[in-house]
Simulated assay, not measured.
Amino acid sequence: MRTWFITGISTGFGRVMAEKLLAAGDRVAGTLRDLSAADDLKAQFGDRLWLASLDLTHTDAIRPTVDAAWAAMDRIDVVVSNAGYGLLGAAEEVTDAQVRHQIDTNLLGSIQLVRAALPHMRAQGGGRILQISSLGGQVAIPGSSLYHATKWGIEGFMETVAQEVAVFGIGCTIVEPGSASTGFRNRSAIVGPRIPAYDISPSRRINHIVDDKSILSPGDQGKMVDAMIASVDQDPAPLRLALGSDSYSHITKALTARLAQLDAQRELACSTDCADQGNSPRWFQSDEG
């Protein structure tokens, strides 16, 4: 039996994961903004479900909530940073308040959640962190610039943290789902005000995807959650977990193009080094050399 801490269990991946884990006999400490959204789970699973109200934009409440969860559950094996949403629209279209809220929720909130959990995981000798990102953490789609800013940002943060905390027995996995029937498009996505000039921009395509409810998502939400749960048994923890055929194909295309562009600049990049450095130590040296 494991104990899990999951943010955003009212809907989507968080809700499905909580249901599956509780049904399997595990314990869950879950957060959500409206506690009543989990009344049915609480009635069914009782003390195996600990609940707290948490809005990730209230960053000063994150650490006390994490501390309270650890105190109540004694040990938490897996932290799932799941809560988040998408802000859609061209960079010029979205409002300043929308920009701030997107970054506060998806990026700063996720960062502070992980920072709050790490002292507990070190003290107990290990654990696992699952950071829910998306294919949007590796791919750039016009009309999603602020969403990508948060997902690319949290992926850089988590990839670094993974290297910092592996010595403590803490594993980190960045989950990159493609489109699934989570309610992201039909409920939680926020669209900025539309500027008519952008009707000719490729950024408008993302608006059409949200507007047209008949467009189906290829990913199976339940299968994706099963894969996330199963990844916790892998040792070492997979750094990334791409889920969905669209995630795999879009990320492959993006990384292949990026690598080709980088390779074409090799001669230029090397030509800008200082001369006569000899065997002097480099400012950064990875474990691989």
Rank of each mutant, 00 (worst) to 15 (best):
C172S: 04
R115H: 12
N106Y: 11
L113R: 09
F45G: 10
R128K: 14
I170F: 11
E267I: 14
A91H: 01
N82I: 07
S214T: 15
I229H: 08
T57W: 12
G244A: 10
R258A: 06
L51M: 02
D34F: 07
F45I: 12
V165F: 01
R48S: 15
P64C: 09
D67E: 09
S280R: 15
D55Y: 10
G86C: 03
A97W: 04
P218R: 13
G86S: 03
S179P: 05
D60A: 14
A90E: 09
L56A: 05
S133Q: 03
S245G: 15
D235Q: 15
G153R: 06
T31R: 09
S247V: 12
R258Q: 01
N82E: 08
T59N: 08
T57P: 07
A123Q: 10
S144D: 03
A91S: 12
E155M: 07
S247G: 11
S53M: 04
L118H: 01
M17W: 06
S53V: 05
A260L: 09
A275N: 04
V139M: 01
G143Y: 13
A91C: 06
S249A: 11
S188R: 14
Q261H: 14
V191I: 12
I206T: 11
A269P: 00
Q102F: 13
L130E: 04
W4I: 01
S271P: 03
Q261M: 14
S231E: 04
R63S: 08
G25F: 09
I229A: 13
L56G: 06
M1I: 11
V175N: 03
P202M: 09
A83F: 10
G8F: 02
E93Q: 13
F184L: 15
G219T: 07
V167E: 02
R33E: 01
T31V: 07
P281C: 06
G183H: 06
V80A: 02
I215M: 08
D273C: 14
G14R: 05
T256Y: 13
V161A: 08
D39W: 03
N106C: 10
I103K: 02
N186A: 04
A61P: 07
D276F: 15
R75T: 13
V167Q: 04
P218G: 10
G109Y: 01
Y85C: 03
S247Y: 11
E164N: 04
V161L: 15
E93N: 09
D104L: 13
Q285S: 07
L35C: 02
D26K: 03
I174A: 02
N82R: 10
D199C: 01
I154W: 02
Q124S: 10
S231N: 10
R2K: 15
R187P: 00
A254C: 02
P64T: 15
T173P: 04
L41Q: 10
F5A: 11
G30M: 03
I76M: 04
A97L: 13
Q131P: 05
S36D: 04
P64K: 15
W50H: 14
P196T: 12
P64N: 11
A140I: 06
R63P: 01
N207I: 09
D60L: 08
T160W: 02
L241W: 00
G84Q: 11
S201P: 00
G12A: 06
C270Q: 12
F13Y: 07
M158E: 02
F13A: 00
R204E: 12
F284C: 03
G178F: 11
K151H: 09
V99Q: 14
